[in-house]
Each structure stands twice: as C-alpha cells, then as structure tokens.
C-alpha cells in the first residue's frame, strides 16, 4: 500500500533565534555535545555526569530537537547543563 505511506520527516532540521534576550539566567552555564553513532541519552549522561539517570535532564533541555528520547541521531548538537 505505497499510496498510504506517510512522508518521512525524520531528517528535518530546525533552528530559532530572537532579537529579544533569552530568558534563561545568564549564570547558567551550558556546553554542547555532538551525537556520534552508538550514542544514547543515558550513555551521554553516564559519560558526562557519571549518572545514566540524568538522561532526562539532557532530554528536557533539548526537547526542541529531540522528538523521541530513544532516538537521537549522529550530528545532532545537544546542549548539556553543567553538573
């Protein structure tokens, strides 16, 4: 049933910016991490913070680019909060 096949939007990339200041506190320091093949949020959390359960913090901070926390893609640039 090829006619019923829905278009695939999984490779859509997005971005945003504003002339208004960001509301996040300036004191909150963040860094970025580029996803590589084989990564998962819990692996990144374990490697970065020593605690795999902190994957949710990473997910919450990157909800704008992660649709499904079980699916992250090589090349995605994630924002990581400092421990």
């Amino acid at each position: 049933m090829a006619a019923d096949k829905k278009p695939d939007f999984s490779d859509v990339r997005s971005g945003s910016s504003s002339t208004a200041p960001d509301s996040r506190p300036a004191s909150t320091s963040r860094r970025t991490y580029t996803v590589v093949a084989g990564d998962s949020l819990s692996k990144i959390a374990k490697r970065t913070y020593g605690d795999a359960n902190r994957w949710r913090v990473i997910y919450e901070l990157n909800k704008d680019i992660i649709k499904n926390p079980d699916l992250i893609y090589p090349g995605q640039v994630l924002t990581l909060p400092d421990a």
Binding site: F9, V12, S14, G15, S16, S17, S18, A20, P21, D22, S23, R24, K63, D64, I65, K67
Partner: peptide
C-alpha cells in the same frame, strides 16, 4: 513535521 521553542524575555 517539527516543533521548536524559543524562550524569550523581551
């Protein structure tokens, strides 16, 4: 297709 959020303090 996509959702994106920008939090601002204008």
């Amino acid at each position: 297709v996509e959702e994106s959020t920008q939090t601002v303090a204008p």
